[in-house]
């Protein structure tokens, strides 16, 4: 997992697989980062994520609640086909927007800010 802070947007890149065996570890690492740094929005970069099951959905939903409490937005960027399928099946896409790339996710936020 890599974490980069761009302005107040935390970009978390998850690599490989997310399941019940590692979702808790990611949950704690992301929460620590949110506490330590001036994070408002969270972007999950799934470009190199090959597999996710519903344990990952639970982990994302938990961070969604935290970020919502900070008045921020959670976004998902570049999911592969299998990952996108579970995002859709679980209904996660109804509350968390999915973008083709991290740049597009960040740009969408700028547009929201400009339009007020």
């Amino acid at each position: 997992m890599t974490k980069i802070l761009i302005n107040n947007n935390l970009v978390v890149k998850l690599i490989g697989e997310i399941d019940h065996s590692n979702s808790n570890k990611y949950r704690h690492e992301i929460d620590d980062e949110i506490k330590r740094r001036p994070v408002r929005n969270l972007i999950f970069d799934f470009k190199d994520l090959d597999f996710m099951d519903s344990s990952g959905i639970g982990m994302i939903l938990g961070r969604y609640k935290t970020i919502k409490g900070l008045d921020g937005v959670v976004m998902i960027a570049s999911p592969k086909k299998q990952v996108e399928k579970i995002i859709n099946v679980s209904g996660l896409h109804k509350i968390i927007p999915v973008y083709e790339s991290v740049d597009k996710a960040i740009n969408s936020m700028r547009e929201v800010a400009y339009n007020g």
Binding site: S54, I57, G58
Partner: peptide, 8 residues
């Protein structure tokens, strides 16, 4: 933080 989506 289980999603409750396993069977779904």
């Amino acid at each position: 933080e289980r999603s409750g989506m396993g069977f779904t």
